[in-house]
């Protein structure tokens, strides 16, 4: 049960899901993955891999990429996935409004709780609110939806989000922005916009802290999960087992 014994699964390279999703290379993303350099000391101490300025830069870059990729911000709808994805959507919307004066600055919230495939594996989750910008009059049909989440991990949250979106209408296109991609995908899903690719082992824990949600300064922190039973490798079990309230692992 201890994470160290899980080598067969966790050593599998965090391969971008092969071919199933058209690959827009995450090349533009910042520094090479190896920049998560600070020593992997056994003390399980937390390592800060992104600081406040890094996060701000990454978001600004993503905002530009969104405009570039979509040739403007027409019909653009940012939907943040609670909790930190909403805050990130808010920040992206502010940046987009600066880049593209026609953009309203509005963003929405997409709660995916009732679409998750792991409900029975965890204590009951509170159902959150789904809020669409008032100007939409309740429909997302033909919008360019950009889902915003803090950490992309197994891909299951995004799978749930796609289902949730489907119940709200039929967007023209759906894209995904994540502040951190830590690998270990369990579904053929990948991000269109990534703040930072972060190679991790399954036994590690990635925490995104945002000032407006968590207090303190913005940061992305990696730490070793102390408890056993983190990883089983095979299915979503693995990733969900380590899910903490403030940590987006999926």
């Amino acid at each position: 049960m201890n994470p160290g014994s899980r080598m067969p699964e966790s050593s599998a390279p965090p391969s971008p899901a092969s071919g199933t999703v058209p690959s827009a290379a995450p090349s533009a993303t910042s520094s090479p993955a190896s920049s998560a350099a600070p020593s992997r000391d056994p003390g399980t101490a937390a390592r800060t891999v992104l600081g406040e300025a890094d996060i701000a830069r990454a978001l600004t870059r993503i905002a530009h990429e969104i405009v570039e990729r979509n040739k403007g911000a027409a019909d653009l709808l940012l939907l943040g996935i609670p909790t930190r994805g909403v805050q990130l959507a808010h920040r992206l919307a502010e940046r987009l409004a600066q880049i593209e004066p026609t953009f309203s600055g509005e963003y929405g919230t997409l709660d995916v709780t009732m679409y998750r495939d792991d409900l029975r594996r965890q204590p009951t989750r509170a159902v959150g609110q789904t809020v669409l910008p008032g100007s939409l009059d309740g429909t997302i049909d033909d919008k360019v939806v950009v889902l915003v989440d803090d950490v992309l991990f197994s891909g299951r949250t995004i799978r749930a989000a796609l289902d949730a979106l489907n119940d709200l209408g039929r967007p023209r296109v759906v894209q995904l922005a994540a502040l951190v991609d830590r690998g270990h995908r369990e579904l053929p899903i990948r991000a269109d916009y990534v703040g930072k690719n972060l190679p991790t082992s399954r036994s590690e824990r990635v925490r995104v802290r945002l000032a407006d949600v968590d207090g303190g300064a913005d940061s992305v922190v990696i730490s070793e999960v102390a408890s056993a039973g983190v990883s089983t490798g095979s299915t979503g079990d693995a990733s969900t087992a380590s899910t903490g309230e403030s940590e987006a692992t999926l």
Partner: peptide, 10 residues
């Protein structure tokens, strides 16, 4: 809501 809170969780 009641069914969700009774049945959805672990």
């Amino acid at each position: 809501a009641a069914l969700y809170l009774l049945l959805a969780g672990d």
